[in-house]
Design a protein around this nucleic acid. Structure first.
Lengths: 151, 151
DNA sequence: ATACCTGCAAATGCTTTGCGGATGG
DNA sequence: CCATCCGCAAAGCATTTGCAGGTAT
Protein backbone atom coordinates (compact mmCIF):
# COMPACT_ATOMS: atom_id res chain seq x y z
CA UNK A 1 0.00 0.00 0.00
CA UNK A 2 2.51 2.57 1.20
CA UNK A 3 4.95 0.84 -1.12
CA UNK A 4 2.63 1.32 -4.06
CA UNK A 5 2.24 5.01 -3.33
CA UNK A 6 5.99 5.36 -3.31
CA UNK A 7 6.23 3.48 -6.60
CA UNK A 8 3.88 5.93 -8.22
CA UNK A 9 5.65 8.85 -6.61
CA UNK A 10 8.97 7.62 -7.91
CA UNK A 11 7.50 7.36 -11.37
CA UNK A 12 6.22 10.90 -11.05
CA UNK A 13 9.57 12.24 -9.99
CA UNK A 14 11.57 10.32 -12.52
CA UNK A 15 9.55 10.62 -15.68
CA UNK A 16 7.96 14.04 -15.37
CA UNK A 17 9.28 16.84 -13.28
CA UNK A 18 6.53 17.09 -10.73
CA UNK A 19 7.11 18.15 -7.18
CA UNK A 20 6.02 15.81 -4.44
CA UNK A 21 4.09 17.63 -1.76
CA UNK A 22 2.24 16.29 1.23
CA UNK A 23 -1.08 17.05 -0.48
CA UNK A 24 -0.19 15.13 -3.61
CA UNK A 25 1.06 12.18 -1.58
CA UNK A 26 -2.18 12.18 0.40
CA UNK A 27 -4.25 12.22 -2.78
CA UNK A 28 -2.28 9.33 -4.22
CA UNK A 29 -2.72 7.34 -1.01
CA UNK A 30 -6.46 7.91 -1.14
CA UNK A 31 -6.57 6.80 -4.76
CA UNK A 32 -4.66 3.64 -3.88
CA UNK A 33 -6.84 2.82 -0.87
CA UNK A 34 -9.85 3.14 -3.16
CA UNK A 35 -8.44 1.66 -6.34
CA UNK A 36 -11.67 -0.29 -6.88
CA UNK A 37 -13.87 2.81 -6.68
CA UNK A 38 -14.62 5.84 -8.81
CA UNK A 39 -13.90 8.90 -6.75
CA UNK A 40 -15.15 12.39 -7.33
CA UNK A 41 -13.14 15.40 -6.25
CA UNK A 42 -15.58 15.84 -3.41
CA UNK A 43 -15.08 12.21 -2.37
CA UNK A 44 -11.34 12.73 -2.21
CA UNK A 45 -11.84 15.92 -0.26
CA UNK A 46 -14.11 14.19 2.27
CA UNK A 47 -11.73 11.28 2.78
CA UNK A 48 -8.79 13.61 3.23
CA UNK A 49 -10.74 15.63 5.79
CA UNK A 50 -11.86 12.51 7.65
CA UNK A 51 -8.27 11.32 7.78
CA UNK A 52 -7.18 14.56 9.37
CA UNK A 53 -5.19 15.88 6.43
CA UNK A 54 -7.65 18.08 4.58
CA UNK A 55 -6.64 18.98 1.06
CA UNK A 56 -8.34 21.98 -0.54
CA UNK A 57 -10.73 21.38 -3.41
CA UNK A 58 -8.84 23.50 -5.97
CA UNK A 59 -5.66 21.66 -5.10
CA UNK A 60 -7.40 18.35 -5.76
CA UNK A 61 -8.63 19.56 -9.14
CA UNK A 62 -5.15 20.76 -10.06
CA UNK A 63 -3.56 17.53 -8.91
CA UNK A 64 -6.05 15.31 -10.74
CA UNK A 65 -5.37 17.29 -13.87
CA UNK A 66 -1.67 16.61 -13.57
CA UNK A 67 -2.19 12.95 -12.74
CA UNK A 68 -4.50 12.51 -15.68
CA UNK A 69 -2.14 14.18 -18.11
CA UNK A 70 0.65 12.00 -16.74
CA UNK A 71 -1.45 8.91 -17.40
CA UNK A 72 -1.63 7.98 -13.73
CA UNK A 73 -5.39 8.34 -13.37
CA UNK A 74 -8.34 7.96 -15.70
CA UNK A 75 -10.99 10.63 -15.73
CA UNK A 76 -14.54 9.43 -16.26
CA UNK A 77 -17.95 10.99 -16.50
CA UNK A 78 -20.82 8.57 -16.04
CA UNK A 79 -23.48 10.94 -17.23
CA UNK A 80 -24.14 13.03 -14.15
CA UNK A 81 -21.63 15.72 -15.06
CA UNK A 82 -19.35 14.99 -12.13
CA UNK A 83 -15.83 13.88 -12.95
CA UNK A 84 -14.81 10.56 -11.42
CA UNK A 85 -11.22 9.45 -11.11
CA UNK A 86 -9.53 6.08 -10.71
CA UNK A 87 -5.97 4.85 -10.85
CA UNK A 88 -4.87 3.66 -14.24
CA UNK A 89 -3.64 0.11 -14.05
CA UNK A 90 -1.45 -0.84 -16.98
CA UNK A 91 -1.96 -4.57 -16.86
CA UNK A 92 -5.70 -4.36 -16.69
CA UNK A 93 -7.79 -4.81 -19.81
CA UNK A 94 -9.82 -1.81 -20.90
CA UNK A 95 -12.86 -1.65 -18.67
CA UNK A 96 -16.33 -1.01 -19.98
CA UNK A 97 -19.20 0.24 -17.87
CA UNK A 98 -22.80 -0.83 -17.63
CA UNK A 99 -24.64 2.06 -16.00
CA UNK A 100 -28.10 1.59 -14.59
CA UNK A 101 -30.35 4.50 -15.50
CA UNK A 102 -32.56 3.86 -12.50
CA UNK A 103 -30.34 3.11 -9.50
CA UNK A 104 -27.03 4.42 -10.83
CA UNK A 105 -25.18 1.18 -10.20
CA UNK A 106 -22.05 0.73 -12.28
CA UNK A 107 -21.06 -2.74 -13.43
CA UNK A 108 -17.54 -3.14 -14.77
CA UNK A 109 -17.05 -5.45 -17.71
CA UNK A 110 -14.16 -6.33 -19.98
CA UNK A 111 -13.71 -7.98 -23.32
CA UNK A 112 -16.64 -6.49 -25.21
CA UNK A 113 -14.51 -5.04 -27.98
CA UNK A 114 -12.72 -6.92 -30.75
CA UNK A 115 -9.02 -7.47 -30.15
CA UNK A 116 -7.94 -5.80 -33.35
CA UNK A 117 -9.96 -2.64 -32.77
CA UNK A 118 -7.07 -0.21 -32.59
CA UNK A 119 -5.29 -1.50 -35.65
CA UNK A 120 -8.61 -1.55 -37.48
CA UNK A 121 -9.16 2.12 -36.64
CA UNK A 122 -5.67 3.00 -37.75
CA UNK A 123 -6.01 1.20 -41.05
CA UNK A 124 -9.55 2.19 -41.90
CA UNK A 125 -9.71 5.71 -40.50
CA UNK A 126 -6.11 6.79 -39.94
CA UNK A 127 -6.96 7.23 -36.28
CA UNK A 128 -4.53 6.56 -33.46
CA UNK A 129 -6.63 5.45 -30.51
CA UNK A 130 -5.46 6.39 -27.01
CA UNK A 131 -8.43 6.07 -24.67
CA UNK A 132 -11.43 3.90 -25.38
CA UNK A 133 -14.61 4.58 -23.48
CA UNK A 134 -17.52 2.19 -23.81
CA UNK A 135 -20.48 3.05 -21.63
CA UNK A 136 -23.74 1.23 -21.91
CA UNK A 137 -26.79 2.74 -20.26
CA UNK A 138 -29.77 0.60 -19.42
CA UNK A 139 -31.33 -1.33 -16.55
CA UNK A 140 -29.62 -3.70 -14.18
CA UNK A 141 -31.09 -6.97 -13.01
CA UNK A 142 -32.67 -5.43 -9.93
CA UNK A 143 -34.24 -2.51 -11.77
CA UNK A 144 -35.27 -4.16 -15.00
CA UNK A 145 -38.77 -5.05 -13.87
CA UNK A 146 -39.36 -1.97 -11.83
CA UNK A 147 -40.94 0.96 -13.58
CA UNK A 148 -38.25 2.26 -15.93
CA UNK A 149 -37.96 5.70 -14.48
CA UNK A 150 -35.01 7.83 -15.45
CA UNK A 151 -33.40 8.63 -12.13
CA UNK B 1 -37.83 18.83 -44.60
CA UNK B 2 -40.99 20.54 -43.46
CA UNK B 3 -42.65 17.19 -43.88
CA UNK B 4 -40.16 15.54 -41.55
CA UNK B 5 -40.70 18.14 -38.87
CA UNK B 6 -44.40 17.47 -39.04
CA UNK B 7 -43.80 13.74 -38.81
CA UNK B 8 -41.87 14.19 -35.62
CA UNK B 9 -44.43 16.62 -34.30
CA UNK B 10 -47.20 14.14 -34.99
CA UNK B 11 -45.28 11.49 -33.13
CA UNK B 12 -44.90 13.89 -30.23
CA UNK B 13 -48.56 14.69 -30.12
CA UNK B 14 -49.73 11.15 -30.57
CA UNK B 15 -47.45 9.16 -28.34
CA UNK B 16 -46.78 11.55 -25.48
CA UNK B 17 -48.94 14.44 -24.50
CA UNK B 18 -46.62 17.25 -25.33
CA UNK B 19 -47.86 20.61 -26.50
CA UNK B 20 -46.62 21.94 -29.78
CA UNK B 21 -45.52 25.51 -29.53
CA UNK B 22 -43.82 27.72 -32.07
CA UNK B 23 -40.58 27.45 -30.09
CA UNK B 24 -40.61 23.66 -30.05
CA UNK B 25 -41.42 23.55 -33.75
CA UNK B 26 -38.52 25.92 -34.45
CA UNK B 27 -36.14 23.79 -32.42
CA UNK B 28 -37.22 20.64 -34.24
CA UNK B 29 -36.74 22.36 -37.59
CA UNK B 30 -33.24 23.39 -36.61
CA UNK B 31 -32.43 19.85 -35.51
CA UNK B 32 -33.68 18.51 -38.82
CA UNK B 33 -31.76 21.07 -40.89
CA UNK B 34 -28.64 20.02 -39.01
CA UNK B 35 -29.26 16.32 -38.67
CA UNK B 36 -25.66 15.60 -39.59
CA UNK B 37 -24.25 17.86 -36.86
CA UNK B 38 -23.94 17.82 -33.10
CA UNK B 39 -25.60 20.95 -31.80
CA UNK B 40 -25.09 22.56 -28.44
CA UNK B 41 -27.84 24.55 -26.81
CA UNK B 42 -25.92 27.68 -27.71
CA UNK B 43 -25.71 26.54 -31.35
CA UNK B 44 -29.47 26.11 -31.46
CA UNK B 45 -29.95 29.47 -29.84
CA UNK B 46 -27.66 31.18 -32.37
CA UNK B 47 -29.38 29.57 -35.35
CA UNK B 48 -32.80 30.50 -34.03
CA UNK B 49 -31.66 34.07 -33.53
CA UNK B 50 -30.11 34.25 -36.99
CA UNK B 51 -33.34 32.93 -38.49
CA UNK B 52 -35.33 35.70 -36.85
CA UNK B 53 -37.18 33.50 -34.36
CA UNK B 54 -35.07 33.67 -31.24
CA UNK B 55 -35.83 30.99 -28.67
CA UNK B 56 -34.66 31.61 -25.12
CA UNK B 57 -31.85 29.47 -23.73
CA UNK B 58 -33.84 28.03 -20.80
CA UNK B 59 -36.61 27.08 -23.20
CA UNK B 60 -34.11 25.21 -25.35
CA UNK B 61 -32.79 23.31 -22.34
CA UNK B 62 -36.29 22.40 -21.26
CA UNK B 63 -37.25 21.31 -24.75
CA UNK B 64 -34.12 19.22 -25.26
CA UNK B 65 -34.83 17.50 -21.99
CA UNK B 66 -38.31 16.55 -23.15
CA UNK B 67 -37.08 15.46 -26.57
CA UNK B 68 -34.37 13.34 -25.02
CA UNK B 69 -36.72 11.64 -22.60
CA UNK B 70 -39.11 11.02 -25.50
CA UNK B 71 -36.28 9.35 -27.41
CA UNK B 72 -36.36 11.93 -30.20
CA UNK B 73 -32.87 13.26 -29.64
CA UNK B 74 -29.64 11.80 -28.32
CA UNK B 75 -27.67 13.78 -25.77
CA UNK B 76 -23.93 13.51 -26.02
CA UNK B 77 -20.94 14.89 -24.19
CA UNK B 78 -17.70 14.64 -26.10
CA UNK B 79 -15.49 15.45 -23.17
CA UNK B 80 -15.71 19.23 -23.05
CA UNK B 81 -18.64 19.31 -20.63
CA UNK B 82 -21.00 20.86 -23.16
CA UNK B 83 -24.08 18.83 -24.04
CA UNK B 84 -24.50 18.15 -27.75
CA UNK B 85 -27.77 17.02 -29.26
CA UNK B 86 -28.68 15.21 -32.46
CA UNK B 87 -31.82 13.65 -33.84
CA UNK B 88 -32.18 9.99 -33.08
CA UNK B 89 -32.62 8.04 -36.29
CA UNK B 90 -34.16 4.65 -35.76
CA UNK B 91 -32.90 2.96 -38.88
CA UNK B 92 -29.35 4.04 -38.34
CA UNK B 93 -26.82 1.67 -36.78
CA UNK B 94 -25.39 2.74 -33.45
CA UNK B 95 -22.79 5.38 -34.15
CA UNK B 96 -19.41 5.42 -32.47
CA UNK B 97 -17.20 8.45 -32.22
CA UNK B 98 -13.50 8.93 -32.80
CA UNK B 99 -12.59 12.17 -31.06
CA UNK B 100 -9.30 13.90 -31.79
CA UNK B 101 -7.70 15.14 -28.60
CA UNK B 102 -5.79 17.79 -30.49
CA UNK B 103 -8.15 19.40 -33.02
CA UNK B 104 -11.46 18.20 -31.62
CA UNK B 105 -12.59 16.66 -34.88
CA UNK B 106 -15.25 13.99 -34.52
CA UNK B 107 -15.27 11.04 -36.90
CA UNK B 108 -18.41 8.91 -36.93
CA UNK B 109 -18.00 5.18 -37.31
CA UNK B 110 -20.30 2.19 -37.17
CA UNK B 111 -19.91 -1.53 -36.78
CA UNK B 112 -17.19 -1.66 -34.16
CA UNK B 113 -19.22 -3.73 -31.73
CA UNK B 114 -20.17 -7.39 -31.98
CA UNK B 115 -23.71 -8.01 -33.25
CA UNK B 116 -24.73 -10.07 -30.25
CA UNK B 117 -23.58 -7.51 -27.70
CA UNK B 118 -26.96 -6.78 -26.14
CA UNK B 119 -27.99 -10.40 -25.77
CA UNK B 120 -24.55 -11.17 -24.39
CA UNK B 121 -24.96 -8.46 -21.75
CA UNK B 122 -28.39 -9.74 -20.85
CA UNK B 123 -27.22 -13.33 -20.51
CA UNK B 124 -23.93 -12.70 -18.78
CA UNK B 125 -24.77 -9.72 -16.59
CA UNK B 126 -28.55 -9.53 -16.47
CA UNK B 127 -28.28 -6.09 -17.97
CA UNK B 128 -30.84 -4.64 -20.37
CA UNK B 129 -28.92 -2.26 -22.63
CA UNK B 130 -30.71 0.84 -23.89
CA UNK B 131 -28.06 3.30 -25.05
CA UNK B 132 -24.58 2.29 -26.09
CA UNK B 133 -21.92 4.95 -26.15
CA UNK B 134 -18.51 4.13 -27.60
CA UNK B 135 -16.13 7.07 -27.69
CA UNK B 136 -12.53 6.65 -28.65
CA UNK B 137 -10.13 9.48 -27.91
CA UNK B 138 -6.88 9.76 -29.76
CA UNK B 139 -5.29 11.51 -32.72
CA UNK B 140 -6.70 11.88 -36.20
CA UNK B 141 -4.69 11.53 -39.37
CA UNK B 142 -3.88 15.22 -39.58
CA UNK B 143 -2.81 15.55 -35.97
CA UNK B 144 -1.01 12.27 -35.43
CA UNK B 145 2.41 13.53 -36.36
CA UNK B 146 2.03 16.93 -34.85
CA UNK B 147 3.11 17.33 -31.29
CA UNK B 148 0.51 15.45 -29.27
CA UNK B 149 -0.80 18.35 -27.31
CA UNK B 150 -4.06 17.96 -25.41
CA UNK B 151 -6.27 20.70 -26.80
C1' DA C 1 17.21 31.15 -3.86
C1' DT C 2 13.45 30.53 -6.59
C1' DA C 3 10.32 28.18 -9.17
C1' DC C 4 6.49 25.88 -8.02
C1' DC C 5 2.60 24.73 -4.87
C1' DT C 6 -1.40 25.63 -1.68
C1' DG C 7 -5.52 27.66 0.07
C1' DC C 8 -8.77 31.13 0.10
C1' DA C 9 -12.06 33.77 -2.21
C1' DA C 10 -13.96 35.04 -6.20
C1' DA C 11 -14.95 34.22 -10.94
C1' DT C 12 -16.52 31.30 -14.72
C1' DG C 13 -19.62 28.88 -17.57
C1' DC C 14 -23.08 25.50 -18.38
C1' DT C 15 -27.41 24.40 -16.73
C1' DT C 16 -31.61 24.85 -13.81
C1' DT C 17 -35.34 27.18 -11.42
C1' DG C 18 -38.95 30.68 -9.77
C1' DC C 19 -42.26 33.39 -11.31
C1' DG C 20 -45.46 36.58 -13.74
C1' DG C 21 -47.34 36.88 -18.08
C1' DA C 22 -48.60 34.40 -22.48
C1' DT C 23 -50.61 30.61 -25.17
C1' DG C 24 -52.12 26.07 -27.01
C1' DG C 25 -55.95 22.68 -27.17
C1' DC D 1 -60.79 28.26 -19.72
C1' DC D 2 -56.84 26.43 -17.59
C1' DA D 3 -53.01 23.51 -17.62
C1' DT D 4 -48.90 24.17 -19.65
C1' DC D 5 -45.27 26.96 -21.65
C1' DC D 6 -42.14 31.07 -22.39
C1' DG D 7 -38.77 34.51 -21.22
C1' DC D 8 -36.39 36.98 -17.92
C1' DA D 9 -33.56 37.22 -14.05
C1' DA D 10 -31.45 34.90 -10.63
C1' DA D 11 -29.73 30.81 -8.57
C1' DG D 12 -27.03 26.34 -8.62
C1' DC D 13 -23.10 23.76 -9.04
C1' DA D 14 -18.88 21.73 -10.72
C1' DT D 15 -14.78 23.56 -12.04
C1' DT D 16 -11.18 27.20 -12.74
C1' DT D 17 -8.37 31.22 -11.69
C1' DG D 18 -5.89 35.25 -9.26
C1' DC D 19 -3.14 36.10 -5.78
C1' DA D 20 -0.49 36.26 -1.42
C1' DG D 21 1.96 33.39 1.34
C1' DG D 22 4.30 28.81 1.90
C1' DT D 23 7.27 24.87 0.45
C1' DA D 24 10.25 21.59 -2.16
C1' DT D 25 14.50 21.01 -4.28
Amino acid sequence: MELKANDIINELVETKDIRITSQRRKILEILIENRDKHLSVEDIYNVSKKQGKSVAIPTIYRTMDILQKSGIVIKNDFGDGIAKYELYVKEKETIHYLICKRCGKIIEVTGLLPDNLNSHLLEEHGFQAIDTSLKIYGYCDDCMYQEGKFQ
